[in-house]
């Protein structure tokens, strides 16, 4: 063996050793690092061997190919054109028939396409316009307990659902307790906003108490909690919907109806 061949031989032996190492690593506990080192090493050694082969063993030579075969010779192209025009002329002579066929094929295509596509999903109908909040629904935690007006400290935040739709991803809302008197129409300082960002639907869950803003972590839209969820900054194009609530005689916070506008991101049918 020449010295160069010996180097290549070494690479090949190492590659085999790496492969064996991988099998060993696999059967003795499967450490990811050992598996990775041995397998990657085997690949790299095979690569090195192939490189050695390419530059030391295989004779270096150059070949020259002609760029040929296209476009075809002029005479061939003319023959093709003639053939096509002629056939086209012969076949499509009855023009009315051609039109009829085209129309029928169009309908046939629709027949093949429309039902399977339509079957894929339900009619959006009013789905995006309403949530599950109804008049009188108690603000309910995910564990099923109602939120009472005396339970939260100022600046505390809770995730709440309608009592009959716990875990409903459209209805989920953020309850915040503000300092009393900060907002005239907040019973005991409580306000509730939809959790769904009006930009692209991420959960708006970050309450910045100093600025009284809710922030969306996805594209950093911020909404003013003291101003009915108006957009302060960011790419959102409309305010975060606010849920109207009251505290009942027993102190339980309840919705007085659904959100006044559709929650979540905008869509074509939304006015």
């Amino acid at each position: 063996m020449t010295p160069k061949e010996r180097v290549i031989a070494l690479f090949i032996v190492l590659a085999a050793a790496g492969s064996g190492g991988f099998i060993a690593a696999y059967f003795t506990g499967g450490s990811r690092l050992l598996e990775g080192v041995s397998l990657a090493g085997a690949c790299a050694m095979f690569g090195a061997a192939a490189l050695g082969w390419a530059f030391w063993i295989v004779p270096q030579e150059h070949v020259v190919d002609e760029v040929e075969g296209y476009p075809s010779q002029t005479i061939e192209r003319m023959k093709q054109t003639n053939e096509l025009t002629e056939v086209q002329h012969l076949v499509t002579r009855p023009v009315a028939l051609v039109r009829l066929l085209a129309a029928a094929l169009g309908v046939f295509g629709l027949a093949l396409l429309v039902p399977p596509i339509r079957s894929l999903g339900t009619d959006p109908d009013e789905t995006l316009f309403h949530t599950k909040w109804r008049k009188g629904d108690a603000l309910t935690r995910i564990d099923g307990s109602f939120v009472r007006a005396d339970q939260l400290n100022v600046n505390a935040v809770e995730t709440v659902f309608p009592e009959h739709a716990i875990g409903d991803p459209m209805s989920v809302a953020t309850l915040i307790r503000l300092r009393r008197g900060l907002l005239a129409d907040a019973p005991d300082g409580y306000v509730v906003y939809s959790r769904l960002c009006t930009h692209a639907g991420c959960p708006v869950a970050l309450y910045r108490k100093a600025a009284h803003e809710l922030m969306c972590p996805c594209h950093q839209s911020t909404f003013n909690v003291l101003d009915d969820g108006a957009v302060v900054s960011g790419p959102a194009d409309h305010a975060l919907p606010r849920l109207p609530i009251v505290a009942d005689a027993g102190g339980v916070l309840r919705a007085t109806g659904d959100f006044p506008v559709p929650v979540g991101p905008g869509f074509w049918e939304r006015p």
Binding site: A44, F46, G47, L51, E61, H62, V63, V64, E66, V67
Partner: peptide, 25 residues
């Protein structure tokens, strides 16, 4: 009108296989 290069076999094939092994590694 022409292309000058290594012949696919064996020169280019050897280099290309080396590349495959390196990508894997």
């Amino acid at each position: 009108k022409n292309v000058v290069g290594s012949p696919l076999f064996p020169n280019y094939a050897a280099k290309s296989l080396a590349l495959f092994a390196m990508v894997l590694a």
